[in-house]
Amino acid sequence: MSSNTPNEVNKNAQPLIEVKGLKQYFQINTGFFRSIPLKAVDDISFSIREGETLGLVGESGCGKTTAGRSILHLYTPTAGEVIYRGKPIITAKDIAEFRTKATMVFQDPYSSLDPRMTVADIIGEPLDVHHMYKSQEERRQRILELMDHVGLNSEHAARYAHEFSGGQRQRVGIARALAVNPDFIVCDEPVSALDVSIQAQVINMFEELQDKLGLTYLFIAHDLLVVRHISDRIAVMYLGRMVELADAKEIYERPLHPYSKALISAVPVPDPVTARANKRIALTGEIPSPLHAPSGCPFRTRCPYAQPVCAESMPPFREVEKGRFVACHRVEEINS
């Protein structure tokens, strides 16, 4: 499947991050000395161009967060590789170097900040870890610069995280992710814990920072409208696998995979007339347990178009149109 990596999408932009056949299994103990693998992420491949934002969507428990963390090697991937600027990340030295180029913004702005550290120390921690300054004054200047980037007042530097609101805390988390001057940031549902009004501010800030600092994002979310707003391309995940990857606009207007169709139809539309005209595709059944995934296509148990062939073999993640990848045996029949 690795031959299908969609890095041909745009030949003029160099892929910054390439993910090839990434697998992340966790051993779950089911009894005494017995364990079965939980396939949290199962064989996903994609690439992200420099300066691009790739949105990663899917329902809860489909492995979005795990995928983000495995890419950063916060978990040791079971199989597959991550290639940064043409260089695979393999040894501990590669990982250590990669950590200064790729960082992460976390979902929960409450538990992701150490309650015993001041804001300056939280933001300065990556600098301390990588010895990225020569004097205390230089460190202080850098921290104030970062706080300015994310719209925090310099007077806040000596305060503790619990003195801030959720939005401000998330800004601290973003400043921390920016500290080492990264190229690539994995944003793990960075706005889902915030109020809607604050969400907009933070999302806009992400975009401003991207323009200003030339960042590349992997933006994980389950809020489809947020993802659509910020992403250039969108990848849809289901049960640890990627089912569709396409341009953000295309996937909203013309989703190809049956799961994407259902997902997109669930997006609320602000105009009641259009909303009434749209038909919502309701999926039946529960999402299967990733411990006992169905044979063949993982989506076949809930798919309205399922045929015997779907139970027999796993559909390959293939390029059906230029830059459009879909994992479905019957994609042509369904969409014709």
Binding site: R99, L113, P126
Partner: peptide, 26 residues
């Protein structure tokens, strides 16, 4: 299991650093 420990790992901190700077103070 707290996320700030994961955040420190993502920043490249080693075990001894995390124990000294995050776990014991907490």
């Amino acid at each position: 299991e707290q996320e700030y420990v994961l955040a420190a790992q993502a920043a490249g901190a080693k075990g001894s650093w995390i124990i000294r700077k995050h776990l014991i103070p907490n």
